[in-house]
Simulated assay, not measured.
Amino acid sequence: MKKALAIFGLTTAVGVSISQGVSAKETIVIGEVSWDASLAIENVLKVVMEKNFNVDVEIMSADQAAIWSAMDKGKGSIDVHPDIWTSSQTEPWAKFIAKGGKESVRANKTPYLGTDGFYIPGYIQDEYGVKSVYDLAKPEIAKLFDADGDGLGEYWPGAPGWTGVKINQIKAKSYGFDKYFEPIIVSDSIIKAQLKTAYRKKEGILFYYWTPEWIHFTYDLRKLEEPAFTGYAGDSKKLHKDYNPDGCYKFSDTENWLQDSEIKCGVPNTEIYIGYSASLEKRAPEIAAFLSNVALDASYVSQWIFKIASEGEYPDEMAEEWVKNNSAIVDTWLP
């Protein structure tokens, strides 16, 4: 009996020792926003993290406000925003990332660059000569984009919850085409379906969009000309490197944002970052170092999006294949 107890005690001690020596895996949660670049980037990050670190990675669909809030709290409900467009996320960037703000969210050191603006089909531009946003402020041009026959053209300023929805409605007012157009605020997937239909019927469609994105590989799309950027105006931008009290870009995120704002220009190429909760620096320091090091290129992102959205590859399989074939790039991201 004593021998049996001794063996039991030794087994128990060994079991305790082993359990204490093996740390539980940290779970990293990436927020998925509603566009294809996010879907592509998050899957590449997931594959790299699970292959190189002792973590599990989950992906959770959420709107941007929820992702920012969760990263700020730092409790692990969502840890990573995979695709922060700084041009449309100026307010949360200032609040959570910028020095002097809460500094509860970090960003990777090297962004990739994107562009955005209003797009129309090439056949509309070629036949009717629509080249500038100011051409939209003509009733005869607006009729080309009147899909429901109510006498007003329709345009897509962005999906519900995007800061860009406000930005693009302000632009419509500032350029004068709001008198002839109405905003249609629907999801990204719906506008892509409408684009497919418009192209099949050779009809007009006006929408905000960006590069990199797969639709530019599939359709002949033309970006409408806007006046050159001359700087950000308004008191909230006084510390910005592009501040100009007489600048063309004044966005006031007030209760009367449409009346209080005026934007009469495009913007420079946008720096696009990966954001992550500062709490990862303590909870999973190797992951924080990795995310800080990730350096994407627009050409990578365009390739990923095209394979997923146009060629029908599953995002996880695309990511596995790319990571396998691009180990030299991935190695530069690892701490």
Rank of each mutant, 00 (worst) to 15 (best):
Q169F: 05
F118D: 03
G158P: 01
K202I: 00
G204N: 02
K171M: 11
K138S: 08
K238I: 10
N244W: 09
I329H: 01
E271D: 11
K109T: 11
K73N: 05
K201L: 13
E321R: 09
Y180L: 13
K138A: 10
E213W: 05
M60T: 14
Y219H: 09
L224D: 03
D83Q: 11
K102E: 14
W322G: 01
K250G: 06
S87W: 05
Y119S: 07
E103N: 13
G176E: 08
P111L: 11
T27S: 10
K250V: 03
D316M: 11
K171H: 05
H240C: 03
V330L: 04
K202P: 00
G9L: 15
F8A: 15
K3M: 06
P111Q: 09
M60A: 13
T254R: 05
E127Y: 04
A4I: 14
I28Q: 02
I41Y: 01
S189T: 15
C265P: 02
E262Q: 13
K2C: 04
Y314W: 08
A13I: 15
E26H: 13
V14Q: 01
E262Y: 07
L291G: 05
G247K: 08
F181W: 10
Q169L: 06
Y155A: 02
F290Y: 13
K196L: 06
Y219K: 04
S88L: 06
E255G: 03
I190K: 13
A289M: 10
W162S: 07
S277R: 01
E50N: 01
A309D: 11
Q125N: 14
L291H: 05
F145A: 05
A94N: 11
T12S: 12
G100Q: 09
I124W: 06
G312N: 10
I59G: 02
Y208A: 12
S23M: 12
A228T: 11
S17V: 13
E154R: 04
K25A: 15
S310T: 08
N43R: 06
D56E: 12
L280Q: 02
Q64M: 12
N54K: 08
I305H: 03
D56P: 00
V330F: 04
L195M: 12
E317M: 10
N168K: 07
D178L: 14
K73C: 00
S87A: 14
L39D: 01
V330D: 00
A278H: 04
D253G: 06
Y134A: 07
S69Q: 13
A66C: 01
D83T: 09
T254L: 08
I184L: 14
A40E: 02
D148M: 06
A289I: 08
V44P: 01
I28M: 04
D148V: 09
I185Y: 09
E286L: 11
A4Y: 08
F53S: 02
Q64R: 13
R283H: 10
L291R: 04
K109M: 09
W68G: 01
A288Y: 05
T86C: 00
M49V: 05
A193Y: 04
Y243L: 08
L334E: 05
E91T: 06
E140I: 03
D242R: 08
A198T: 01
V165A: 08
